[in-house]
Computed example of a mutant assay.
Amino acid sequence: MLVLEDVNASYGSVVALWGVSIRVEEGEMVGLIGANGAGKTTVLSTIAGVLRPARGTITFGGESIVGESPEDIVRKGIALVPEGRRIFPGLTVEENLRLGAATRSDRLGIQQGIDEMYQRFPILGERLHSSGGTLSGGEQQQLAIARALMCRPKLLMLDEPSLGLAPKLVGDVFDLVAELQDTGVTILLVEQNVAKTLQIVDRAYLMRTGRIVAEGPAYELREAVDIKSAYLGAE
């Protein structure tokens, strides 16, 4: 479904990604893990069209998306839930959801989609007239995910969905992400919480200073000695 091959990306003269190659197959949940500053968010920005790669290829569904605008990439079926949620705090829950469908023109389908989001995320249905800024952190994360789902993505990219949440809510968010995959959503999950990520993803890539330094099935990475010592608290 999604293939990155030998991708370099830069912010001005600073190279942020070096030869990154990643693939995500339909129906999979793939993790992109590593410490803060490893380049994980830059990978998502490059896929989403916010940052153009300096080298390499990115294909989605067999077609190149390099050089496409972020809006066109959304239309092709890739949605991003950004780090920090970035909902519109002054708009109501329903208004936020409608913005998620900005690339769609089917009014009836949009309303059906909103109703589906209220079924999937009941708290949003209870708060549909509340402004986004009055929601708790966990509720805002649900709203951010629901907003992304409103464009009916083939691939959902999640950037640090557990960031800034209370410990109990972190578990709830990971449960929610796992449930999304069970409904058939293909997911690329970026997280610093390596232990929990490796519990729910099928495969993962470990990044360090802009490079992929390890990859494989989640169960193999959980047992890798260097990953256990550096990220999972094992001796």
Rank of each mutant, 00 (worst) to 15 (best):
R104E: 10
E25L: 15
K168I: 02
L143C: 07
E116L: 07
E220K: 11
S45E: 11
V66K: 13
S45A: 03
L188D: 03
E179H: 00
I227M: 11
P70Y: 13
G137Q: 06
G37M: 08
E116H: 04
E220L: 10
F174P: 02
Q112F: 01
G62R: 15
A218K: 12
D6G: 04
M1K: 01
V190N: 04
I123V: 04
V3K: 04
T209W: 11
L99E: 08
I187Y: 12
Y11I: 10
E235W: 03
L80I: 05
K76D: 12
R147P: 06
T46L: 02
G113D: 01
E5I: 00
G84F: 05
K76S: 13
G125W: 00
Y11S: 10
V185Q: 07
V66P: 10
L108M: 15
R147C: 09
S105H: 12
L108K: 15
A48E: 14
G113M: 02
P153C: 09
S130Y: 03
L232N: 09
A178D: 06
V170L: 03
A224K: 12
A38E: 12
A38D: 01
V66F: 15
I123L: 05
E116K: 05
Q192L: 02
A9D: 13
A101Q: 14
V93T: 08
T41R: 11
P217Y: 09
Q192N: 08
D175S: 03
Q192E: 06
A218N: 13
G67H: 14
D226M: 07
N96I: 09
A148C: 12
S136T: 05
I114A: 06
G37W: 02
S21C: 05
I58L: 12
I87L: 02
R208E: 10
L232D: 03
I187M: 01
A146G: 00
E126V: 01
V15C: 00
K228E: 13
